[in-house]
């Protein structure tokens, strides 16, 4: 084949550059509206170290791995939670942790369920639990669980344990139920006087509890409940 003078082709190609550049710039702007339908969200942090929060956000947004960073952050949150030694430090910033994790990974339902359960039923921070759930429902309108949980928290506010129990039972029946939920359910049963149901839950924890602390707690609770039942039987006789 006789020579395509490469210089001539380059000249023709160079003439295409401005046209293609404008096209890609236009498409980039158009795609932005599709990729980022909601504007950048950074939930304010109050109790959490602001440097850690900013660093996490920077890593997530700079690398383009928001969800991955969100998962890693979330997993290290749940390792701390539930341990009494962290009550003063990590528990106090649970809402901040959950907010940041859900900024990075808004479609990860576990953040909202775990966070709301812990905040509402364990730490008694109802407002924060409700706010977290509202955020979750906004990001995941189809997630019915979050709506139930929000309802249960509303009942918690009225101190009507009998209204909360069905929601807690449904939550505890899910494969991804956090261990602490069983403590909450068992304690709620105990509060309304359903000791047999409470014993069943604690027996489950004693058998399948993830940590020694949980199993020890279950054993203590069982002893306590057996003592109550014994006392009741004696008084009935």
């Amino acid at each position: 084949m006789s020579a395509p003078d490469s210089g001539r082709w380059v000249t023709k190609g160079a003439a295409l550059i401005p046209v293609l550049f404008v096209l890609q710039a236009y498409l980039s702007t158009r795609l932005h509206e599709w990729v980022h339908p909601t504007s950048f969200e950074a939930s304010p942090v109050q109790r959490m170290d602001k440097t850690i929060a900013s660093t996490l956000r920077a890593v997530a947004y700079l690398t383009g791995y928001k969800v991955l960073v969100g998962h890693v952050f979330w997993i290290q949150i749940i390792q701390y939670y539930g341990d009494d030694d962290n009550a003063a430090t990590r528990w106090s910033q649970l809402y901040d942790d959950c907010s940041l994790a859900s900024d990075l990974n808004p479609q990860f339902i576990s953040i909202y369920t775990f966070g709301a359960n812990a905040l509402a039923f364990h730490l008694k921070r109802i407002d924060q639990a409700a706010r977290l759930l509202e955020k979750g429902i906004k990001a995941n309108p189809d997630a019915q669980r979050l709506k139930y949980l929000l309802a249960a928290i509303g009942y918690q506010n009225t101190n009507n344990d009998n209204l909360i129990i069905p929601v807690l039972e449904e939550e505890a029946g899910r494969p991804d139920a956090p261990p602490m939920l069983f403590n909450i359910l068992a304690n709620t049963y105990q509060r309304v006087g359903r000791y047999q149901d409470s014993i069943k839950v604690w027996q489950g924890v004693l058998k399948d509890g993830q940590t020694d602390e949980l199993r020890i707690l279950a054993a203590q609770k069982l002893q306590e409940l057996y003592a109550i039942l014994k006392k009741q039987n004696l008084s009935n006789h």
Partner: peptide
């Protein structure tokens, strides 16, 4: 007889 830029020359 031509330019080195030409394929036929190369």
């Amino acid at each position: 007889g031509g330019s080195i830029a030409q394929r036929s020359v190369r």
